[in-house]
């Protein structure tokens, strides 16, 4: 409850920040004199990282990848929540849609990429569609589950006080299903990320995934490593941003859970 972080939480925080730094240091010193072609010194990788990603390919590849990811993910998120609402709230649609959804969700998202290539070629549309479709399912399923689990008591309150359909959706259903929707969105983010890379590794193309694959095929091993490093950094940043938003939107949920655990 107190504002001042306890000694224990400071120690845990230091552990969280310290461990990656220690691992990086280990990598740095262990690889310092490496002559192995496949494991170049970290110093060299970082050097290539700076040269490649921060200047040369920033706009041509990094931004392109990030834009595809953001667009595909945004489309998936909005569509999944919207379709999830319609599905959960209408029994006929639920019966019609359920089998199709369960068929489609069983297919690994990456396996869909070749279909889109044959349908749309190697352009941007193919990439964004692949990302959006793959990222759609986790959020969709979580939204439907979340809505089905909304407490009967809250719905009774909404009925007794005669809330309009819009109020019911915005003020009751959406927040009540919020925690589940966010878990879905988190899985969708990871899926979107995987498919973003996969979609770039096919066909002559731009993007971080394409550059990394190209580097590997041209035996520019340091470049390849720097690409992987960049993917790690982006993944970390995306998750970090996601968590910030989640903490803000679900503050009530996180707070109530913490209180429930403490008592």
């Amino acid at each position: 409850m107190s504002k001042r972080p306890s000694l224990k939480s400071v120690r845990l925080w230091l552990l969280g920040v310290g461990t990656p730094l220690v691992l990086l240091a280990v990598w740095w010193f262990a690889s310092a004199d490496s002559t192995d072609t496949f494991f170049p010194p970290l110093a060299e990788i970082l050097d290539r990282f700076r040269a490649l990603w921060l200047f040369d390919h920033f706009t041509s590849d990094v931004l392109v990848s990030l834009r595809n990811l953001a667009l595909g993910y945004a489309i998936a998120g909005v569509a999944a929540v919207a379709v999830g609402f319609v599905t959960a709230l209408s029994a006929p649609i639920r019966w019609a849609v359920d089998p199709v959804i369960h068929f489609l969700r069983g297919i690994p998202p990456v396996a869909l990429v070749p279909i889109f290539i044959s349908l749309m070629g190697f352009g941007l549309e193919m990439r964004i569609t692949s990302i959006a479709l793959a990222a759609f399912f986790p959020t969709f399923i979580a939204t439907v589950d979340g809505l089905r689990a909304v407490d009967r008591g809250l719905l009774d309150v909404a009925s007794v006080y005669r809330l309009s359909r819009g109020e019911r959706v915005v003020s009751v259903l959406l927040p009540a299903a919020g925690p589940q929707i966010f878990s879905g969105l988190q899985v969708s983010l990871q899926t979107a990320f995987v498919v973003m890379i996969a979609s770039e590794m096919l066909g002559p193309s731009q993007g971080i995934g394409a550059m990394t694959l190209l580097a590997q095929q041209s035996f520019m091993i340091s470049d390849m490593w720097s690409g992987i490093l960049l993917l790690g950094v982006i993944g970390f940043a995306a998750n970090f941003l996601f968590d910030l938003v989640r903490r803000k939107v679900l503050a009530w949920y996180i707070g109530s859970r913490r209180l429930a655990r403490a008592s």
Partner: peptide, 13 residues
Amino acid sequence: LVFQDYSRSLMPW
């Protein structure tokens, strides 16, 4: 209507 189960009648958010 004031429900019996208050924990399921207020919006926690």
